[in-house]
């Protein structure tokens, strides 16, 4: 399996007030193409920060990150823009849908950025796939959490990215919706074959992953990269 994500010695700290907190400490890892990886760990262990750094949302203080053999660490925000648009898909705990857009518009937005002439059809197809075609013209505020997350997943997938990063995608959902989202992500991974990196507390999700990386105090717990 060829590697698609490579992190070398990445470190990251935050300063809160006068206190400096080291979140990530010289982490190195590789993730293969089409792999389904779960990042687990207790609160404050640095899971979400790791995901942000791996996906280029945040810059590490030290070390380097490669995505598809391209070093993204020195890239500016504008250089990262096309990488995020075509190579990566994001799913967040708080959904982060654009409130002023309908479900359909939210999904087709990244495709329109790419100037894909088939954006609307692809968005409709994805909505149908997740069983939300009847909600196409609803705004986020008119949908339940589970529905919003399904829309967010569709949005992440519209440009057929090679990697999908999901940060606690079931964190804001009830158990029924959580199960549905887990099933959906697993199903999409199987069908589309993209690399899936999920930060989660969910044991059931972890159980379906190819590999689980456990973080503790900013380092990968020994023997966790199973």
């Amino acid at each position: 399996m060829s590697q698609i994500i490579k992190a070398e010695n990445i470190s990251k700290h935050f300063t809160i007030g006068s206190q400096r907190i080291q979140i990530l400490k010289n982490i190195s890892l590789t993730i293969g193409k089409g792999e389904f990886v779960v990042v687990a760990g207790s609160s404050g262990s640095g899971k979400s920060t790791l995901l942000s750094v791996l996906s280029g949302l945040d810059k590490p203080d030290g070390g380097r990150v490669e995505l598809c053999l391209r070093d993204i660490t020195p890239m500016s925000e504008d250089q990262l823009a096309p990488v995020r648009n075509t190579l990566i898909g994001f799913v967040f705990q708080s959904f982060h849908l654009i409130p002023s857009l309908t479900a359909l518009e939210n999904i087709q937005f990244p495709a329109e950025l790419k100037k894909d002439p088939d954006a609307t059809n692809k968005a409709q197809a994805l909505l149908e796939k997740v069983g939300l075609s009847q909600r196409a013209n609803n705004y986020p505020s008119q949908m339940s959490g589970g529905e919003q997350q399904r829309v967010a997943i569709c949005r992440a997938l519209i440009n057929a990215p090679q990697i999908v990063f999901a940060d606690e995608p079931t964190g804001n959902l009830d158990s029924g919706n959580s199960t549905a989202i887990i099933e959906l992500l697993a199903k999409l991974h199987e069908e589309l074959g993209m690399t899936l990196v999920i930060v989660t507390h969910s044991r059931s999700l972890a159980a379906r992953a190819d590999r689980v990386i456990v973080l503790r105090d900013g380092v990968i717990e020994a023997g966790s990269q199973l």
């Binding site: 823009a81 995020r84 648009n85 982060h96 654009i98 990244p110 440009n159």
Partner: peptide
Amino acid sequence: LARIQEAVFYKILGADSVF
């Protein structure tokens, strides 16, 4: 806040600062 949020979402979804 809504504007920052939108700008961030645009960027996450692949928009550059020109957009």
